[in-house]
Nucleic acid binder design. Structure first.
Lengths: 343, 343
DNA sequence: CTGAAAGCGCTTACAG
DNA sequence: CTGAAAGCGCTTACAG
């Protein structure tokens, strides 16, 4: 904890400008009811002195806070780092600070972080992690979010959050899943294994739904394919790949449901001397910046993460609408070097 | 801005516990001078009610703030994202929120962000961006930092910040530069081009110093090599690579001074059909998570970014020492597939 | 050990 | 349009 020594206070600029602190306050916050002459004088004095209002005093007195809270699963992940970049960009343009929280992919940690943010009295919260399909998690999220909104807070989420009823930026996960699966099917792959994250995540469920639809269009069923669940990370991808290769050595393609996992898959394949794409094709999802520079360059589904971050904060900056807003984020199939015709 | 409706206040728990708010406050903050019986009763009531103190009121009254500010160049960069991950981890363990700021690599923006953080009344600031060699920038940084420290704030930096005199985590940039250059020289490379970021950054200067020393040990001089400056990013790497190839088509190795740039270099080389490492060897610096999974896997210098983030915050969490503390962070040469004997 | 009271630095009805 | 004053929700000397 830090002790402030007394800095410059509103009284100081008020005195110097020869007005009351009430007038000074109004002039500085730009509220109506001050003559332009006085307002201008006060502002000049403040600028001259380098005065900046104490956020805590201001927030306490007004009950309003300019802070924005950002909840991510793991900031070290490129997916979230790129989203955060977009959020920071917009926050900067609006002179707002962003407080960021990790959840470590634990849905209950997410609820706890949400509460911490509410307690920190931020005015806006952006939740970048995927929604969860677990009823209990949903219910808890809902409690926090509604309490926050009831108190005047604004929240926007990235991804589908069932039942939450807040403004959302929703990436085309279903379409992306379908597109990437179509791509593999079109190349003649039938023995496809899926490296997936937790199926309890809405994002995961949606991507799998897309994959399933593509399969059905080809007379196949997702249930007949090995779908290996692991952590939604590079390490998780490795683990999934090992299980896939051990249990289903005849697969011709591994469809990983995010790029991190795909990188892990590529890594295990390389270790085992299995050539990509000659022996096995591999795909990812997200198209993080490095995806096109991997070995081999990764065929994946592009999602505009940074733009999604920007849009989410922009939504949250808007006053609340009567019905939750929904901004779709388009996907785009990126065919690169990690896929080829089935052998 | 958000309007709070009245939440639970300290009075509420004090009343319910049958004590004064003074006692309640002391019990909850764990300060001495309350009987254990009362303290326990108050804590039980607070927990029961789900009471959490209003940070703004607390900060205003006590003059102390638990917030930590983190300044990075660009959170979308894996280097900074990984550092941020370490910072968030430690912050979480200490129940502190972190406010994060972008500088977009503009040193003056860095100074401005620092000031914003000071105004936001955080108690701790971690500066993750490299120090700058420009005198004017240094002086301004120093002013902000000292004002902050004088007011009781704690700051730690990552990287060398000349003249700043604060606790620092200092990566072995000189040694790393020397190691990576040694590696190339050992492979017989002599016509080496350097893809560098701004030489005004201390990090860059240090890495170049290391390179220079290695060269001298082989009777060469950095001044005789093409050192191309560009942005310290993937795009900058591309630009540098183009200039290097156009102006010095005979180089046998490109030594990029961070991984982002190296990725850009690899990308341009691929475009032009130049084989790595057969025609040209390429090296990076930092060893971001994906470096080992690039095409080809990148020979680079490993720096423990996440650990550096952790250590920086841990330093800042310590009370100020009489002399600034210095935690070195070791480098490690990672030889992978992007380098081979000079042709 | 406990409490009444002042004070942190602002904002905002309420008067004028 | 302007100002005196109350109040936001805490902490912390100061008394007892």
């Amino acid at each position: 904890m830090r002790k402030h020594t007394a800095g410059l206070r509103l009284v100081d600029v008020a005195e110097r400008a020869g007005v009351s602190i009430a007038t000074a306050s109004r002039a500085l916050s730009g509220s109506a009811g001050v003559s332009e002459v006085l307002a201008e004088r006060v502002r000049a004095v403040a600028a001259d002195l380098g005065y900046v209002a104490n956020v805590h005093a201001r927030s306490l007195a007004s009950g309003a806070s300019p802070g924005v809270g950002l909840v991510v699963h793991e900031i070290g992940d490129p997916y979230f780092a790129e989203i955060a970049s977009g959020v920071l960009e917009v926050a900067g343009a609006h002179d707002r600070m962003v407080q960021i929280c990790h959840t470590g992919r634990d849905p209950y940690a997410e609820v706890a972080q949400l509460r911490a943010l509410v307690n920190a009295r931020v005015g806006i919260i952006v939740v970048a992690g995927s929604g969860h399909l677990d009823r209990d998690v949903q219910a808890r999220m809902k409690v926090e979010v509604h309490a926050f909104e009831a108190a005047g807070g604004r929240v926007a989420v990235i991804g589908r959050h069932p039942q939450l009823g807040v403004d959302a930026v929703v990436p085309a996960n279903v379409e992306g899943g379908r597109a990437i699966a179509e791509h593999l099917l079109g190349l003649g792959h039938r023995r496809i294994a899926v490296a997936a994250g937790s199926r309890r995540l809405a994002t995961m469920a949606d991507r799998l739904t897309g994959v399933s639809r593509a399969l059905e269009a080809h007379g196949l069923r997702l249930a007949d394919l090995p779908v290996v669940e692991a952590e939604f990370t590079l390490e998780g991808g490795k683990e999934a790949a090992r299980r896939i290769l051990d249990e289903h050595p005849d697969v011709t393609a591994v469809l990983a449901l995010n790029d991190d996992m795909a990188v892990g898959v590529l890594s295990v394949l390389r270790e085992r001397g299995i050539s990509v794409p000659d022996d096995v094709s591999v795909t990812g999802f997200d198209d993080v910046t490095v995806a096109g520079h991997l070995s081999p360059a990764l065929t994946t589904v592009h999602l505009p993460m940074k733009e999604m971050g920007r849009q989410a904060l922009e939504l949250a900056l808007l006053p609340r609408a009567t019905r939750p807003r929904r901004r779709p984020a388009a996907q785009r199939l990126m065919v690169r070097a990690s896929t080829s015709r089935a052998r």
